[in-house]
Amino acid sequence: MSVQKTVIKVKNLVKKYGKLNAVDDVSFSVQKGEVFGLLGENGAGKTTTLEIIEGLRRATSGEVEVLGHNIREANGRVKQKIGVQLQSSAYYQFLTLKEILSLFCKFYGACTDPMELLDMVDLKDKANSYVGKLSGGQKQRFSIVASLVNDPEIVFLDEPTTGLDPLARRNLWGLISKIKAQGKTIILTTHYMEEAELLCDRVAIMEKGKILALNETHKLIENAKIPYTISFSINKVDKKIFEKVLKFGEIENVFGRVKQFELRIKNAKDLASALDEVRKLKPESFTVGRATLEEIFIELTGKTIGED
């Protein structure tokens, strides 16, 4: 196994706006090559945290180190090596996609071929169009690819799929995976749980400027109160076996239907043994369900996430 390299270190980060602590003592680190997700509803402090790391905002206190540089001291050097897609930003109205990418190349002094980048996001045929002529999904794809002009080591994506239709979102997930496959580190913020679950190696769940939970995505799921549920239907209830099954968690008669049950397993490690016991009941059918990040979010915050 290769030695993991830390590319971002955030320590006791605080950002105050008057009396409001937008970011409240946040600490985490990001390893090279991983997709790190910051999850939370609007106003949780995700974007502020991201923008401090990107060098766009100054922290009230705390330390941020990016690629070995203190962001306060080496803002320019860090910006040279990172790519940023802002939550909402427009591009020059009267420049074509190709011209915008060439312009941004000049800002970095070095660059990937604009046509190659446009090809990567299937926008090659739009090279001579204005941004205003693109659809929502195309705009977002362009916005992401514009963050890659300097071949960055770390890519920051701030809510890249917000406001997109399901197809366009899936399209972007493919693009994000492609960027990860190039060996780049990605930090993304989102309030779509399924997106974080699908894309992120690790996630930090934020609320009111604080990190409530931080772990590898699958571990967060396994550590949930009910990490797995087994739904099964049986013709005959064998009481002996049924009692054994009950050891693994609560069982519920689903929707009052006599033969339909749901076993909520409390400990992730018990999944295999529980499955063995359920099998002994000779179920007509069974399915295994995993806790979702959404459920964990509800568990941690006591509320569902919304887009406001």
Partner: peptide, 14 residues
């Protein structure tokens, strides 16, 4: 307003 300038501040351009 359109955050074009903000986008420029994410680059090393002084």
């Amino acid at each position: 307003e359109d955050k074009i300038l903000k986008r420029i501040t994410t680059t090393p351009l002084p």
